[in-house]
Design a protein around this nucleic acid. Structure first.
Length: 221
DNA sequence: GACCAGGCACATC
DNA sequence: GATGTGCATGGT
């Protein structure tokens, strides 16, 4: 089973890569921008995040140090377009304050703890859950941790690689058990799954034309 | 005018 | 431990 799951996951990866091409995530200029974007994109379409990032850039506020020094209300106004802006402003502030306090404002200090240590630290910060933590570790820290989102779980269930109660950890463990810990591939794979979801997972409709249609267990997403 | 988007925290059962 | 709800804007 482990062997076949591995083949299945690699097959899915190859099909998605062939269909969509490399996604080259994360779309950001700096590591701090990745971290900020990871908070802003929570439950939000990326297009709306881009507006918020642009506003932060115009305000010269696209680092955690600057965010740390920006008043909450001002910050919330800058990121309004990303939705739940008051919540996200609080989360960005708590993250920036924590990084300043704990690592003197430097992400290097965090990532130097290694994957497990840095992950534990991040999960202790208000507003950072498993998915956001893994996105930060993978795309900003270049550490090989797999990012699981709702689409990913749906794909795994659909292809019978996971049962009905597929929580975050189970899905993540499945990928990391069956694929070598390769950071570029993990990054590309997650991005491809998001792209798949965006194109074919709307409204639970059967996914006609989905690149995974040819796979045995696929009956739509 | 619904419904959704690259979630998370918190309350409740 | 599972499920429900608030957060809130902009696109379809």
């Amino acid at each position: 089973m482990a062997q076949s799951a591995q083949k299945e996951l690699m097959r899915i990866y190859e099909l998605l890569l062939a269909a969509f091409g490399p996604q080259n995530w994360w779309p950001a200029r700096t590591r701090q921008e990745v971290v900020i974007g990871a908070i802003l994109t929570q439950n939000t379409a990326w297009k709306n995040v881009e507006r918020a990032v642009s506003a932060l850039r115009r305000a010269n506020c696209l680092t955690l140090r600057r965010i740390h020094r920006t008043p909450l209300d001002r910050l919330a106004e800058l990121i309004r377009s990303s939705g739940t802006h008051r919540v996200k402003a609080r989360r960005l502030k708590s993250l920036a304050a924590w990084l300043q306090r704990r690592f003197n404002g430097r992400l290097e200090g965090l990532f130097a703890l290694g994957l497990e240590g840095a992950r534990r630290e991040l999960l202790g910060v208000n507003g950072i859950g498993p998915e956001t933590a893994d996105a930060i570790l993978l795309y900003a820290g270049k550490l090989p941790t797999f990012v699981v989102d709702a689409y990913t779980r749906r794909v795994l269930r659909r292809h019978l690689l996971l049962g009905g109660q597929s929580d975050y950890q189970r899905a993540k463990a499945l990928f990391e058990r069956t694929m070598p810990p390769d950071e570029p591939i993990y990054g590309e794979y997650h991005a491809l799954l998001v792209e798949l979801g965006k194109r074919y997972c709307r409204k639970r409709a059967l996914c006609e034309g989905c690149p995974l249609e040819s796979l045995s267990h696929d009956a739509g997403l």
